[in-house]
Simulated assay, not measured.
Amino acid sequence: MTGQSLSMKMTDLQDLYTEQLQDVYSAEHQLLEALDEMAQAAGTPELKEGFELHAGQTREQIGRLEQILGGLGAQPGGVTCKAMQGLVAEAREMVEKKADPAVRDAGLIAAAQRAEHYEIAAYGTLRTYAELLGRTQDAALLQTTEDEEKATDLKLTGLARSINMQALG
C-alpha cells in the first residue's frame, strides 16, 4: 500500500497508526500540488475558487498531521502514498485533455471526489486507531480533518449538479 520498505516490521497498532499517518501525509502533499494545477485548469470560477480553498485547507491538514506525528516522535516523511499517486495521475490526465471547458470541469470534479473519498476513508481509519490507542487529542484533530473532507465532497457534489448539466451540451 505504501512505498515504505517491506522490511520495516510492524509489531502493533501503534506502528500501523504511525505508518498510516505518514502515508496520508504523503497523500496530502501530492494532492496539494495537484489542486494548484486543477485550479488553473478549471473553467468555472466557482470550481477554481473551490480548488483554491481546498488547497488552503489541505495546508492546515498537513499541519495537523505534523503535530500528531511530532507527538509520536515520528518523522512525517519516508512513506509514499501510491493510491494518491494514481488518483493524482488521473487528475493530471484530465487537466491535459483537449475538452470542452464544462466537460473538463466535470472530469476534474470526478477526479477530486475520488481523492476526497480516499481521504475520508483514511482519516476515518486513523481516527479509530487514535481512539483505540487512547490518543484523544489526535482523534479530535483527525475528526476535524475527516469532517472537512466530507464537507469538501458535498461542495463538489453541489458544483457537479450545474457543471454536469453544462457538460451535457
Rank of each mutant, 00 (worst) to 15 (best):
T18N: 05
R64M: 13
T157Q: 15
A130L: 15
Q113W: 06
D153R: 04
I163N: 07
I62T: 14
G63Y: 07
A55P: 02
T11F: 03
R135N: 09
G56F: 10
S26T: 06
L141Q: 14
V24G: 02
D153Y: 03
E66W: 06
M84Q: 07
D36H: 12
K97H: 07
L53D: 15
A41P: 09
V24M: 09
H54Y: 11
L126Y: 09
R104E: 08
K150F: 01
L53T: 11
T136C: 03
L72E: 13
A89L: 06
R59Y: 08
R135I: 04
T144R: 13
T58I: 14
T18A: 12
L47S: 05
E33M: 06
E148T: 07
A41M: 08
L13W: 01
Q22S: 04
G3N: 02
Q113V: 06
E49Y: 02
S7Y: 06
T152M: 10
T58Q: 15
E96N: 12
A122P: 01
D147G: 08
A160L: 14
S5C: 01
L159F: 12
E93N: 11
L156F: 15
L72A: 13
R135Y: 01
D23E: 11
A41S: 15
R127D: 01
G78W: 03
Q143P: 01
P45C: 11
D147R: 15
E93F: 00
D12R: 03
E66P: 06
S162I: 03
A83Q: 05
L159E: 08
E149A: 06
G70Y: 08
L6K: 00
A99K: 08
A121R: 03
D138C: 09
D100R: 13
E90Y: 01
L6R: 07
A111H: 09
L65Q: 13
M94E: 14
H117V: 02
D105F: 08
Q4V: 04
E60F: 09
Y25L: 03
E37C: 07
A83L: 04
V103I: 13
L142I: 15
Q30P: 05
L133T: 08
A106N: 12
E33N: 09
M94S: 07
L108Q: 10
S5H: 02
D12G: 12
Y25C: 07
A122T: 04
Q57I: 07
A55M: 11
A151I: 04
V88T: 08
A39I: 09
I120T: 00
T125C: 05
G73E: 06
L141Y: 07
L108F: 10
R104C: 07
G86W: 02
M84C: 04
I109K: 04
Y118M: 00
T152D: 04
L108A: 08
G78D: 02
A111K: 05
G158T: 11
D147I: 03
R92C: 00
L13G: 02
A34K: 01
A102C: 10
L69Q: 04
K48L: 00
Q166S: 11
L142C: 14
M165R: 14
A89G: 11
E66V: 11
T136M: 11
E90M: 04
K97R: 13
